[in-house]
């Protein structure tokens, strides 16, 4: 059980360059580009599961979050192909457009396309966007990916991290948001139906929604990580950028054990120092804990 202590902020697109150089100076490290595809699963509504377990303890049904990285070749379009992959590329993503389509993510979740980066990914993307919005049957997928490595022996799913988060800790005068996260790593799969979606339905969970994050991160002292994120919701009807016109700023530190009070207090001080340092420029604040509640029963609509 990891405790994640975090603060959030917001900056507009115009302020991006200045913020990058400011943070590079503060952290002493260059910005690093990253991306993640996050899929959220909820308990299958067709099962009537009680909220108590065999020991008569209350267990609230939580959403499960599955996250993985994607090859950048999935995300950039033709005009960006020649550009170096660094923080500048984020400035090109100013609207809802992103190469990743719902069909591609569905293929990832159903293991229909190999997801390792290879030479054929560029054509894959092209074909993928051509097929966007249509129903792609398996024959199309075979055409898309004629790579020798897509033989059935590679049908295993790629690594995912599986997380279940608690609602952030309560309290009126909290200076930072503190959330407990339980996590395990899925390495591979095998068998008759090895796709990640069939594994999740085996658990009793169904797909709910997904989002893509592209961002830059700074590794700072004391294990502090600062991220500037652009977030897209990937839907069947089309993609939409949630962070339109700006960037979400997330500053966080993970504390390995929730019982390590000393470490948590220290970490809180580190985050407060960062907040003080950036005061008047970026306002880092504690998000509404309701908005970070992953429980299903409370009818909370997350996005």
């Amino acid at each position: 059980m990891v405790q994640q202590l975090s603060l959030f902020g917001y900056i507009s697109d115009d302020g991006y360059d200045l913020l990058i150089s400011t943070l590079t100076t503060i952290s002493g490290n260059p910005p690093l580009l990253y991306n993640s595809l996050c899929t959220v699963w909820k308990p299958n509504p067709s099962y009537d599961v009680e909220n108590v377990n065999s020991r008569n303890q209350l267990v609230e049904p939580n959403r499960i979050k599955l996250t993985k990285e994607l090859p950048f070749s999935y995300l950039i379009n033709e005009t960006m192909v020649g550009q170096p992959l660094n923080f500048k590329i984020l400035k090109s993503f100013t609207n809802d457009t992103i190469s990743l389509s719902y069909v591609m993510t569905r293929n990832i979740l159903h293991n229909e396309v190999l997801h390792t980066s290879n030479a054929s990914t560029t054509t894959e993307i092209k074909n993928g966007s051509e097929h966007a919005g249509q129903i792609v049957n398996e024959n199309d997928i075979v055409d898309v990916d004629m790579d020798a490595s897509s033989t059935p022996s590679n049908r295993s799913c790629s690594p995912w991290s599986l997380q279940i988060s608690d609602i952030p800790a309560a309290g009126n005068n909290r200076s930072v948001s503190m959330q407990t996260i339980a996590e395990t790593i899925i390495l591979s799969s095998a068998g008759e139906n090895p796709s990640i979606s069939s594994l999740m339905s085996g658990f009793g969970y169904v797909f709910e929604y997904q989002y893509l994050t592209i961002g830059v991160k700074f590794f700072m002292r004391h294990g502090l990580i600062l991220e500037l994120q652009k977030i897209w919701q990937i839907q069947e009807a089309g993609n939409s950028q949630i962070t339109n016109g700006g960037f979400l700023i997330k500053a966080y530190i993970n504390v390995n054990r929730g019982t390590d009070i000393d470490r948590i207090n220290y970490t809180e001080t580190v985050l407060m120092n960062l907040k003080k340092e950036l005061q008047g420029y970026i306002e880092l604040s504690v998000p509404d804990r309701q908005s970070m509640d992953s429980r299903v029963a409370h009818g909370n609509i997350l996005i």
Binding site: S36, T67, L162, E183, P194, L199, G202
Partner: peptide, 30 residues
């Protein structure tokens, strides 16, 4: 389950580095 299997790990050393780098994993799996 149902003739399908999934391999999971609780060892921090086995986490693919890409998952830790992009923040997908907190680095402390159970």
């Amino acid at each position: 389950k149902d003739k399908s299997a999934v391999v999971t790990t609780a060892a921090a050393a086995d986490i693919p580095p890409a998952l830790v780098f992009n923040g997908s994993s907190t680095g402390v799996p159970e």
